[in-house]
Amino acid sequence: MPHGSAALSFEGRRRLVRRCQHRPIAHVAAEAAVSRQCLSKWYARWRRHGDAGLHDRTSRPEHSPTATPKAVIEQIIELRKRKWSARRIHLELAQEGTDVAVCTISRILVRHGLNRLRHLDVDGEPLRAPGKIIARYPGHMTHLDVKKVGRIPDGGGWRAHGKHSPQAKASDRARKKGQRIGYTYLHSAVDGFSRLAYTEAHDDEKAATAIGFMFRARVFFTAHGITRFTRIVTDNGACYRAHDFTRAVHSFAAKHQRTKPFTPKHNGKVERYQQTLARELLYAAVFESEQHRRDRLRVWQVHYNYHRPHTAAGDQPPASRLPARVTNLMRSNS
């Protein structure tokens, strides 16, 4: 949806159709850089419906002759409540002379929340309702994760010199010989309540590295006033499945919670933070070396926690939701 003051949004269209009352449509369309047919359509809608006709309309067709009839949809839902599979429902309808594809039946079941049998009770009604994972206070849920990114060679990689540059070709030749430059592992921790984040770059993702990072992250959060840690949330990576990591968590937190396999949304706060990190830092600038990127990471982390507005914090920086601050850097507009 365009914003309210866009050139060809509702307000722009209203101005154009008013000009068409006294001037040829083709002339007004040429001045506004739109086609005559487009402006004629808006003008006809305005004459028929007034200003209400200039709003954006849905692209959904008024009539769908091939849509599944409502009675068939109700029959599919009724058969599903008997714990029938989509294939069995398809065969049952085919015997009655109604040909509905299995994929169509599956989409109907997803639309009505009946796609997973284990989520239905004995009467066929959904057992689960969609909800949000909400932290009630600072330290209630601390989310940990690791992001693996390629190392930057000294002098810069292909993003600095181009894919067909001599540096990029040399890197390709080395890779074919088995001389890989390796990866950097970004260990991140995010407080679920304030979205305060802490990230370190390491050379591996072993359990010992994850444990050391977690305790340093705890010191960072404690300096911001987060002294009570209830739940540490991680995925099922090898470093987080280690017994030593679980014992380390229980030394200061009440629970170590691992997310359900193949369900990254359960650890979504740190996953979303990593997307922001990649978009605004990792791939937003040209770095001359791996150390250059790591130095910029420390600067960007201060920007993220103290200056960058966050929608979950009411368009305020994450540190604004915590009682303590550990930096006095001023905002830079350069």
Rank of each mutant, 00 (worst) to 15 (best):
M1H: 15
M1P: 15
S9Q: 14
S9E: 15
E11F: 11
H22K: 09
P24R: 05
I25T: 13
A30W: 05
A30Q: 13
E31L: 11
W42N: 04
W46P: 00
H49F: 15
H49G: 09
G53N: 00
D56L: 14
P61N: 06
S64I: 13
P69M: 04
K70R: 11
K70I: 10
R82Q: 15
K83P: 01
K83L: 10
I89M: 07
H90K: 10
H90S: 12
E92I: 10
L93A: 07
E96V: 03
A101H: 10
I105N: 07
S106G: 07
S106H: 06
I108D: 00
V110A: 08
H112G: 00
H112N: 11
G113W: 01
L117E: 13
D121A: 03
V122H: 08
V122E: 12
R128T: 08
K132A: 11
K132T: 04
I133G: 02
I134G: 02
A135M: 04
R136W: 07
R136N: 10
P138G: 03
P138R: 04
G139A: 08
H143P: 02
L144E: 05
K148W: 03
G150T: 05
G150E: 09
P153D: 00
G156I: 00
W158D: 11
W158M: 08
A160I: 09
H161W: 14
G162A: 01
K163W: 08
K163D: 11
A168V: 00
A168P: 01
R173M: 02
R175Y: 04
K176F: 01
G182P: 06
L186N: 11
D191G: 04
G192D: 05
G192W: 02
F193P: 03
L196D: 00
A197R: 02
T199N: 03
D203G: 04
D204Q: 05
D204S: 07
T209M: 03
A210M: 10
F213T: 01
M214N: 00
V219I: 03
V219N: 04
F221D: 00
T227N: 08
I232M: 12
T234P: 05
A238H: 03
C239F: 01
H243F: 06
D244Y: 01
H250F: 07
S251R: 06
F252Q: 00
A253W: 00
K255M: 06
T259P: 05
F262D: 05
G268Q: 09
K269R: 09
E271D: 08
E271L: 11
Y273H: 14
A278S: 13
E280F: 03
L282F: 11
Y283R: 09
A285K: 15
A285V: 11
V286T: 14
E288S: 14
E290C: 09
Q291P: 10
Q291A: 14
R293W: 03
R294A: 07
R296F: 15
V299H: 15
W300A: 06
H303C: 12
Y306I: 09
Y306E: 14
R308M: 05
A313V: 06
D315I: 07
Q316M: 13
Q316R: 15
A319D: 09
R321S: 13
P323C: 11
L329C: 12
N333Q: 13
